[in-house]
Computed example of a mutant assay.
Amino acid sequence: MKHAEEVTFGGSGLDRAAEIRGDIPALATLMQDAGSRCILIWRGKPLVSGDTGLDLVRLPMDHPVLAEAGEPPIFMGRENGAAVFAYDVSGWEPEQLDADAMGQFLDPSEQKHPLLEAGTRFAELRMIMTRLSARDAELAATMRSVVSWHSSHQFCSRCGTKSVTHMAGWQRICPDCGGHHFPRTDPVVIMLITRGNKCLLGRSPGWPEGMYSCLAGFLEPGETIEAAVRREVFEEAGVHVGQVSYLSSQPWAYPSSLMIGCHGEALSEEITLDTVEMDDARWVTREELMDAHAGLRSDILPGRKGAIAHFLLRNWLADRLD
């Protein structure tokens, strides 16, 4: 797919500068450098500013809000030669917090920290991802994934001892058994399944009414991408798939997946639904999908912009799967 890296969270060309993650003197110098900057996250939400178009806020390394960070910073890399670090300030407790909003599939609430400038706020990444530049989206998604990993993997999986941050936030080491642990990325296949003029869409229990998407599922150990596509589609919808081809990929920070976008050609049309995994699955024609994207249907919502499913479906409609 010639334009595969146009997908959200991909293609910004961030210099991650992995070669200096273990260089403690160099990192210490960068943290004192007046040109270095930091980005913030609070309970999975990056700090942004702006209106229609949003910017990931970059703060100086001596900003007072950093005193509220509970863990050492993560070295994200370099932008135009300047270092960028990420801090997690999730320990901050806002005076008013809408717990119901934060539990929604798409959290519309925003939080404003009293030590930060007016106009800056913490916002749910899924709500704002298409309003960020490619670079800011990559930084925000990477920060969210690595911070989430640290939060959920604080103890050694070999011996149970609490591990410590290492390699500028890109490893954890067990002080007892010496085990090294690395940020987790879970491969997921997400597939545009077509048969002639129709594509196969499904919806999971708990999704907003009318929301449909491409079928998806995690790869299993010892399984190829092609085999995973065929297995998942048959398990969820009872549809047999023949030819499978790779299209594009997307880092997806919920919490740490790599979405592997594929195109599969269905060999059958009859649907046998897995009612545990799926609420519904249906064949949708190009014309029906175009009407949905134009807002002309109430039974099928247009795909969420920024998600790889929307990217794949939009390019299928435009006949751009080359």
Rank of each mutant, 00 (worst) to 15 (best):
E5Y: 15
L14I: 11
I20F: 00
R21S: 04
T29L: 11
M31H: 08
Q32G: 12
A34P: 11
G35W: 00
C38Q: 04
L47Y: 07
G53M: 07
M61D: 09
M61R: 15
H63F: 12
V65N: 05
A69N: 08
G70N: 10
E71G: 06
E71D: 14
F75Y: 15
G81S: 09
D98P: 11
A99C: 08
G103I: 03
S109C: 12
S109H: 07
G119H: 08
T120E: 13
E124G: 03
E124V: 03
I128V: 14
E138S: 07
A140K: 04
S145T: 09
W149S: 02
W149C: 02
R158G: 04
G160L: 04
K162W: 11
T165D: 15
H166Y: 15
G169M: 03
R172P: 06
R172N: 07
P175I: 11
G179Y: 10
H180C: 09
T185R: 12
V189R: 00
C199D: 03
G202R: 03
P205I: 01
W207G: 02
W207N: 09
Y212A: 02
Y212N: 02
P221D: 11
A227M: 09
V229H: 01
V239D: 01
G242R: 09
Q243S: 11
L247N: 01
P251Q: 12
P251S: 13
P251A: 10
P251R: 05
W252D: 10
A253C: 08
S257L: 10
L258I: 14
C262P: 03
L267V: 00
E269V: 06
I271T: 09
L273F: 10
V276R: 15
W283A: 02
T285K: 03
E288Y: 11
L289E: 04
H293V: 08
A294L: 13
S298K: 15
L301T: 12
P302D: 05
G303C: 01
A307R: 10
A318C: 04
L321A: 07
